[in-house]
Amino acid sequence: MAFDLQWLLIGLPIAFALGWLGSRLDLRQWKREQRESPRAYFKGLNLLLNEQQDKAIDAFIEAVQHDPDTTELHFALGNLFRRRGEYERAVRVHEHLLGRADLAQADRDRAQYALAQDFMKAGLFDRAEQAYQALDGSAFDTEARLALLTLHERSRAWRAAVEVAQKLERSGTGSFSTRIAHYWCELALEADAAQHPEDGDTALRHARLAAPHLARPLVITGQRAARRGDLNGALKAWNELLVAQPTAFNLVAKDYAATALAAGQADAALDRLRELYARAPTMDLLAAIAMLDPAPEGQRVRLFRHLQDQPTLSAAQELLRQTTAADGVAPLTAEETQGVRDAVGRAAKPLQRYRCAACGFEAQHYFWQCPGCLSWDSYPPQRLEDL
Rank of each mutant, 00 (worst) to 15 (best):
Gly11Glu: 13
Gly22Ile: 12
Gln29Asn: 13
Trp30Cys: 15
Phe60Asp: 01
Asp67Phe: 08
Arg84Asn: 14
Gly85Ile: 02
Gly85Pro: 06
Gly99Pro: 06
Leu115Phe: 04
Lys121Arg: 13
Leu124Pro: 12
Asp126His: 14
Arg127Ile: 09
Gln133Val: 15
Arg145Ser: 08
Ser155Lys: 13
Glu163Pro: 08
Val164Leu: 05
Lys167Asp: 12
Leu168Thr: 00
Gly174Phe: 05
Ser175Thr: 12
Arg179Val: 13
Ala181Tyr: 03
Trp184Pro: 07
Glu186Thr: 10
Leu187Phe: 07
Leu189Tyr: 12
Asp201Gln: 13
Asp201Trp: 13
Thr202Met: 15
His206Gly: 14
His206Val: 09
Ala207Asp: 06
Arg228Thr: 10
Asp230Trp: 03
Asp230Cys: 00
Ala234Asp: 04
Ala244Lys: 10
Ala244Glu: 10
Thr259Cys: 01
Ala260Ile: 04
Leu261Phe: 04
Leu261Asp: 02
Gln265Met: 06
Arg279Thr: 07
Pro281Ser: 07
Met283Arg: 00
Ala288Gln: 06
Ala295Trp: 07
Pro296Val: 00
Gly298Phe: 05
Arg302Lys: 04
Leu303Arg: 03
Pro311Gly: 02
Leu320Pro: 02
Arg321Lys: 13
Gly328Glu: 01
Gln338Ile: 07
Gln338Asn: 14
Tyr366Ala: 02
Ser375Tyr: 00
Asp377Met: 06
